[in-house]
Design a protein around this nucleic acid. Structure first.
Length: 1180
RNA sequence: GCGCGCGUAGCUCAGUUGGUUAGAGCGCUACCCUGAUAAGGUAGAGGUCCCAAGUUCGAAUCUUGGCGCGCGCACCA
């Protein structure tokens, strides 16, 4: 039997029961079993890092990741969901360092790498309970027991295979490059990691004079002005770069007014006059070069500054000084000139020594002006200080310069900074101090020596370590390992082009752009807790080889050092075997070099970027190729993945890059694009209550646990899924989550509750009514939905309201499947919500009288057939909606299924709604015409209410008549409306309803062009046609159109337009003076006149209303019967009541109604439309 | 600086290929129901669709340029 469900549901409590049910029965596994062998729907879980607490953003991803696999499973596909955990890398190491209260690499080494690694391994499981709790609580069905873990040996070995493959193909190389360097952490970072750590900071911005040298190698008064925001790089200055075809000027400070000026006519025009100069350059700086200005002797001359012409004015403004231009010259004229570097760090005393060039001639190796195309005039001075050690582009200058000299003769890389970010002894004044901390002293020193032209603060974004955000990164030269991803740019783009991105703009926008500008992947990390780079080096020759697995390592000749791990394991049996492929144990493993007799092969020291781990999960989750061949082949590529937008540079990229490099090469056996994923939903960012970024310190969001306990997981899921398209940024607001409950979950629940209450009262039990209980199989029930029970009638035999409901139901199901197959759950959810609204606010409301009608619904002799139809219709509708909603709100739907299906049919139905088939909609039950006409009735009712409201004619007051005029007169529609007069009368509380016979009394008709049809047809003539249409006699035109199907319309500019009946729409407008309301499809007119009888009825309704309120106040059950007594001094009210006592009695469940007081009754005196009345009410 | 996205009612947001009166929920106001009842329903008010120009017969929608917000990127030396 179906349990009656009453009262307000406690969703959180209910969800916990359901979660336990799934856990106990292993429902997820069963759902897989049922689809074994079916077409696969492949899902990849992007592994979260479990060493931090889950937050609302994870709730969103987990909701989306659950929705589609559930849906696809119900649609008949087989969707394994294998969990995974990201466990390596800086996030973990930094967390452990915090715990230990240490920071630097030196401190880690002092603590000991071995215990440090153990701590890292333990740390990744720290919040596992919370993560598993969240996963179950939000209803994310995923197999946690089979989770892949990136530090597991099997996973590591898969990554090794990938790296060995890349190494063997020459795609993994060691390069000396300028990398973003985390000095305190002693490692390079990937561009993705660097991107995580940008912060806005104010750095010193200095303009420094580099005095040009004369032929004797002595500094002149004339200096290049270079600009930098990193004063600490000045001691390592090596070149100054200019743009060859850019104009530079030589500035000299203009004499102050009290100093005698230069001879008149030379160069001292006033600024205003100067502005009239013909070359269009602004202001003061347009003086022609004066002959006198050239020959100033060195000693008494003021300093002269060389700067790019377009930037000279800006410098003058900064210095608040006026300058004369004493020379103009192209950048090319500066190239080759030597200058005095700001520091003598690397400079020998004496004039610069020239070294022979390959192309002939000679040049000093450093402190010389070079030409470079990257020099711009966007900011600075147009003269770029080049310190090749600390800038990627600077480094290219060095490489280019080196090429001009014979090998070994050219400039060496100048670098006075140690890997830990401190100055070496080569730069004495900063020795041992962190470079950025020396900026001030360096600036002061330059100033003291008269070389500081200008100094200011410069606010810009600068990268910091994403895991230690007080540590600024520096660019630093380092030997590092790279993957040649840039060589595969086109392949990655081609692969990307085949991926379905949602939203679509990610493909060519954010992600495509990122691929376009791809640089080689800086893979290695000089750290401890990560997948060790599986490359062994010959200690003698330096030659290397990559090892693809631990077994391959053990198979090497003369392997030694495996005992280090074995001893550790013996000392500590708890030690995980997975650690044997990690530092420090793996570093101990050596073998005989194949390259030099007697030499040993030793592993390089680095570990790798943890993003490579997660990007390798498509195969590494199975341990492929060492194991899991069948699984990998069956589960690659993924049909669907989803993460938030920050993963474009993270997991989305690492997967695509690795997959493209490993599996994407054209030719035999290549995996066709796209891989490793076909569809990716990119989720928007989650914002806090205030629309700002979520932040723990700001407390602008509620913990998920609070939401779960207050509103439930379904509420949160529905909010995520139905609130907005998933790629919008979502405002995670408690208010919005709370408000999403009544509009869908509660509405559905209320209908369900309504159904169960009356089903019990009327004895409706679908199982008991089966014609042949037991003859139905699971499949019959699951697919055909309870066909052929006794008393059951097919839809065609039921009333039109039932057919309408079933039509809406099946149309919605079909639409939802279309939307869901296109990964558009937002649209699907909106359809679903509209369906539940239709069921609650029209079907149930209009069917109430059938549920309350006499007779039973148990299929027995007292059965009322129409009533039974209503039950079956509502039952089928509820059950189908439950299935439709199941992937969205899995808990509440399961609760409903358990009662409506399992409690009723027992073993005849699947034990969980999630084991059923998703309804695809039965087209045979969709009746578009019926839906349209029902919409018409709803429109008419709605317009009627609007008309009443406009005239302040409250619905309790019965009125005589309502008339409707359809905009588009169709006899069939009119007939249909007439047939539903009773319904409309009831909705509007009127006595008569009819289609108006004399529409001209109330309305005027006009003919409107159907622009969508007429636009393409008439084009430029459309405005004239519209004007003509407005003029023409609408009635006559309509008559013509109806009669002949088309009409000619003369146009103002001559000519005519031929229009078809379908090209026009008819608009009806209500005339003044009637209680009328108009909509696009109809005008509804209400008769305002009241007869005494109508007034009396109105009064009676008021009294009934008052009695009902009193019943409610007295807390009577709706089945309680009562005695009523009325007292009134109003003859009119008394007469009205006297005429309708029976109505009052039946409406209020009164056993008797009398005039006069009642003993033991609750009494209330009130005013009924101006008539005094005392109501005495006693329980029967 | 470059790129991507967004800007629609008091608030949170939809708006499908350009088309006639731009929608929903919440909130507000009025009303209805009182046998879903510590629920439910109906209606109303409320909008220069950020601004400007353009394309078009027609623009919230397409184009360009501004302004504002968010995010991303990084050779800002």
């Amino acid at each position: 039997m179906i349990d009656p469900v009453r009262g307000k549901p406690d969703f959180p409590a209910l969800e916990k029961t359901i979660a336990a049910l799934w856990r106990d029965r292993g429902t997820y596994r069963t759902s897989l079993e049922r689809r074994r062998g079916a077409k696969r729907f492949v899902f990849f879980e992007g592994p979260p890092t479990a060493n931090g607490m889950p937050h609302p953003g994870h709730c969103l991803t987990r909701t989306i990741k659950d929705l589609y696999p559930r849906y696809r499973t119900m649609r008949g596909e087989y969707c394994e969901r294998k969990a995974g955990w990201d466990t390596h890398g800086l996030p973990v190491e930094v967390e452990v360092c915090k715990e230990l209260g240490i920071h630097s690499k030196a401190e880690i080494e002092a603590y000991g790498i071995e215990p440090f690694i153990h701590k890292c391994q333990a740390s990744v499981w720290r919040y596992m309970k919370e993560w598993e709790g969240l996963t179950e609580r939000i209803g994310f069905w995923i197999d946690l027991s089979q989770a892949y873990v990136t530090y597991h040996q099997r996973f590591v070995e898969s990554v090794w295979w990938a790296l060995a493959e890349l190494f063997d193909r020459g795609l993994l190389y060691q390069g000396h490059k300028i990398v973003w360097w985390w000095a305190q952490g002693g490692t390079a970072l990937s561009s993705g990691e660097v991107g995580q750590g940008y912060k806005e900071v104010a750095d010193p911005s200095v303009y420094v004079a580099f005095p040009l040298l004369d032929d004797a190698g002595l500094p002149t008064q004339r200096s290049l002005v270079a600009w930098t925001t990193t004063p600490w790089t000045l001691p390592s200055n090596q070149f100054a770069a200019v743009k060859a075809d850019l104009e530079y000027v030589v500035l000299r400070e203009a004499p102050s007014p009290d100093v005698p000026r230069l001879p008149p006519g030379a160069s001292c025009a006033s600024p205003h006059e100067a502005r009239s100069g013909s070359d269009g350059n602004p202001g003061l700086l347009t003086f022609p070069l004066s002959p006198q200005a050239r020959g100033v002797s060195r000693e008494d001359a003021p300093p002269e500054y060389v700067i790019a012409a377009p930037l000279a004015a800006a410098l003058g403004e900064k210095l608040k000084k006026t300058f004369d231009i004493v020379a103009r010259l192209p950048g090319a004229a500066l190239v080759g000139r030597s200058y005095l570097p700001p520091f003598d760090t690397f400079r020998e005393p004496g004039p610069p020594r020239a070294v022979p060039l390959v192309a002939g001639g000679a040049a000093p190796v450093a402190w010389r002006v070079v030409a470079a195309d990257f020099v711009t005039t966007d900011s600075g001075t147009g003269i770029v200080h080049i310190a090749p050690a600390f800038g990627e582009i600077d480094y290219t200058v060095l490489v280019a310069e080196q090429a001009r000299f014979a090998a070994g003769e050219g400039p060496a890389l100048l670098n006075c900074v140690a890997p830990d970010g401190t100055f070496t002894d080569a730069f004495g004044m900063g020795s041992g101090r962190f470079v950025k901390d020396c900026d001030r002293d360096i600036t002061r020193d330059i100033k003291a020596r008269g070389l500081l032209v200008h100094q200011e603060q410069y606010v810009h974004d600068y990268p910091f370590c994403w895991r230690a955000d007080n540590d600024p990164l520096i660019q630093y030269p380092r030997q590092s390992w790279f993957i040649r991803t840039s060589q595969f740019r086109d392949e990655m783009l081609a692969n990307n082009a085949r991926i379905d991105w949602l939203p679509e703009h990610i493909k060519d926008g954010r992600f495509g752009n990122f691929l376009e500008t791809n640089v080689d992947w800086a893979l290695s990390r000089e750290r401890y807790w990560g997948t060790p780079l599986p490359i062994w080096v010959c200690e003698e020759t330096g030659r290397m080889e990559a090892v693809p697995s631990y077994a391959a390592l053990l198979a090497k000749p003369g392997v030694a050092g495996t005992d280090v791990f074995e001893r550790a394991k013996a000392a500590n049996p708890q030690l995980s075997d997975d650690l044997k492929v990690h530092k420090p144990y793996i570093d101990a493993v050596t073998y005989a070099s194949p390259f030099a007799p007697g030499a040993r092969m030793q592993r390089v020291t680095e570990v790798i970027d943890c993003w490579f781990d997660s990007g390798a999960m498509p195969f590494a989750q199975w341990g492929w190729p060492h194991a899991g061949d069948a699984e990998f082949k069956a589960q690659f590529p993924a049909d669907f993945i989803s993460e938030a937008i920050d993963q474009t540079r993270g997991w989305f990229y690492s997967q695509l890059a690795i997959s493209t490099l490993l599996f994407g090469q054209p030719g035999e056996g290549a995996t066709p694009y796209p891989h490793p994923f076909k569809t990716c939903i990119v989720l928007g960012h989650m914002l806090g209550e205030d629309g700002q970024k979520m932040s723990k310190s700001k407390r602008n969001y509620k913990e998920p646990a609070v939401i779960f306990d207050t509103y439930g997981a379904d509420a949160l899921r529905w909010f995520f899924l139905a609130g907005q398209p998933p790629w919008n940024s979502i405002r995670y607001s408690e208010r919005a989550i709370r408000e999403s409950v009544p509009e869908f979950l509660l509405r559905l629940w209320n209908v369900y509750s309504f159904f169960t209450i009356y089903a019990r009262i009327d004895g409706f039990d679908p199982a008991a009514q089966l014609a042949a209980p037991g003859s139905l199989t699971h499949a019959d029930l699951a697919h055909a939905d309870l066909t052929q029970p006794r008393g059951w009638r097919p839809a065609a035999a039921r009333g039109e309201l039932d057919r309408w409901m079933l039509s809406e139901l099946h149309a919605t199901a079909a639409a939802m499947v279309t939307r869901m197959d296109a990964f558009d759950h937002f649209a699907a959810a909106q359809r679903l919500s509209a369906l539940v609204d239709a069921m609650s606010n029209w079907y149930v409301r209009r069917s109430r009288d059938r549920f309350w009608a006499p007779g039973r619904a148990d299929g027995g002799p007292e059965t009322n057939a129409e009533k039974l139809d209503a039950y079956w219709t509502l039952y089928e509708t509820l059950l189908t909606i439950t299935k439709l909603a199941a992937p969205f709100v899995p808990f509440v739907t399961e609760a409903i299924w358990q009662n409506l299906a399992v409690a009723t049919f027992g073993d005849l139905v699947p034990e969980s709604v999630h084991l059923t088939d998703y309804p695809a909609g039965d087209a045979a039950l969709v009746d578009a015409d019926l839906v349209r006409r029902m919409g018409l009735v709803r429109d008419v009712s709605s317009l009627g209410r609007a008309a009443r409201a406009a005239e302040q004619l409250k619905v309790r007051q019965p009125l005589a008549k309502v008339e409707v005029i359809l905009a588009d007169t169709s006899p069939a529609d009119e007939q249909w409306l007439a047939a539903h007069a009773e319904l409309v009368c009831e909705e509007l509380n009127v006595k008569h309803f009819e289609v108006c016979r004399e529409p001209d009394r109330y309305i005027t008709r006009s003919v409107l062009p159907d622009l969508k049809k007429l636009g393409p047809k008439l084009g430029k003539n459309l405005p004239q046609a519209r004007a003509a249409l407005a003029q023409v006699d609408a009635a006559a035109l309509l008559a013509t159109l109806t009669r002949e199907g088309r009409a000619k319309l003369p146009l103002a500019g001559g000519g005519e337009a031929v229009i078809d009946r379908d090209d026009v729409l008819i608009r009806t407008t209500a005339k003044e003076g009637w209680a009328a309301a108009e909509g696009p499809r109809a005008v509804v007119v209400i008769a305002k006149e009241l007869t005494p009888e109508l007034v009396a009825e109105g009064l009676v309704r008021e009294v009934v209303h008052a009695v009902q309120s009193q019943r409610k106040t007295l807390d009577l059950d709706f089945t309680d019967r009562i005695f009523l007594g009325f007292e009134t001094s109003s003859a009119e009210l008394r007469a009205a009541l006297a005429g309708h006592l029976e109505t009052v009695a039946s409406e209020t469940l009164a056993n008797s109604t009398t005039f006069g007081p009642l003993a033991g009754a609750a009494s209330e005196t009130l005013d009924i439309d101006g008539h005094p009345l005392t109501i005495h009410l006693a329980r029967s």
